[in-house]
Design a protein around this nucleic acid. Structure first.
Lengths: 185, 185
DNA sequence: GTACGTCGCAACGCAACCGTTTCGTCGTTA
DNA sequence: TAACGACGAAACGGTTGCGTTGCGACGTAC
């Protein structure tokens, strides 16, 4: 029987190593070193570093992403932004997410995993939010949820991850208002 | 005297190698192999792969980025989006840019170079566009060019680079219109 | 109390790349 | 034509990680 505490230590080490050096530079030796276990313990559980990461991403995907239901489009958008900003400002996540996204451009398996864990989830949330807004009459029939998602999280991702700028007070409020205004075509 | 054609071959190989495997996996041996030159020729010109890439990025920075002047805010925004979409759809650039952006999060020298080559350029363009729009009375005094840039290129970058989705006909038009609408607070 | 499986540790042979050096070839310059 | 310097190729010793194997220690199940 594989020891649970060892498994957890490895999982944690993968996460930290991924944030510290990125997928490309990550090594199984480094993971074992960081986790304080032997390489044997790692190879007994996973075949390669790819499987390690796919397992990690799948765990994130499994936990799901909650869709807001505040009763207004602005409220929903603002809630989505709050959640996204929280994740993208997390020091570990803000390193791991863009790193894996770049890796996904070269590796179909990572691409598929990331899509299921993040993009599909977000598109699902956007679909719920848009559908509710349409039902309330806040948005016209046939509004495209994907385009809505672009307008909502695109600017935030750009600022936090690409430019790596700060998040001024009131920025999320303004952005939510801008997105709502942009959506009501 | 160093041979110009060899220098060019190396520069080209760096670009291709960067797109193919990314900065982290890139090796000087691989570059020399791809360029069809000896390692000696590379080391005679640059100290390390970091210097190779910094040199490449500086070359991009030096060529500058043109600011549009179409006479309307919508026209200017649309022109910026056209240029950005062209770059982000380029198969090599669309691999290299996000890769270096991720690398920049871990390497201050790359960060500085990328900032000068891309971000500062874009912020300069945004500043010109916003200033012109304010002068025309299309935007209120004190509009923030950085926020404008977030709203203009954020959604496009998200769609093309993060989601790696397609670009439907009319998307740029809609996005430009949305951005203009969002900016007029 | 014995047998089994996981544990950490260390070593294995192999591969890639590091940065340097040596060599013989070739083109340019004087 | 002689000297010089860059060229490609190959080899150097050193480092890192690969995936595998053998080891003795430990803990648990029977």
């Amino acid at each position: 029987m594989l020891r649970e505490d060892v498994t957890d230590a490895i999982r944690g080490a993968v996460f930290e190593e991924l944030a510290a050096v990125g997928f490309a530079r990550m090594s199984i030796e480094g993971i074992a070193r960081r986790a304080g276990v032997g390489k044997t313990a790692v190879y007994r559980r996973w075949k390669s570093k790819l499987h390690l990461v796919l397992d990690l991403v799948a765990a994130v995907a499994a936990q799901g992403m909650p869709a807001p239901a505040t009763g207004s489009l602005y409220g929903d958008v603002r809630a989505v932004l709050e959640l996204a900003a929280y994740a993208l400002r997390h020091p570990v996540a803000s390193q791991v997410i863009p790193d894996l996204l770049v890796e996904a451009a070269r590796n179909p398996e990572i691409s598929e995993a990331i899509k299921a864990a993040l993009l599909d989830q977000q598109q699902g949330v956007a679909a719920v939010v848009v559908r509710a807004a349409v039902a309330r009459g806040e948005l016209p029939e046939g509004s495209d949820p994907d385009r809505a998602l672009d307008l909502i999280v695109g600017p935030l991702y750009w600022r936090l991850v690409v430019v790596r700028g700060d998040l001024p007070k009131g920025y999320l409020d303004d952005l939510a208002a801008s997105a709502v205004r942009a959506l009501k075509a």
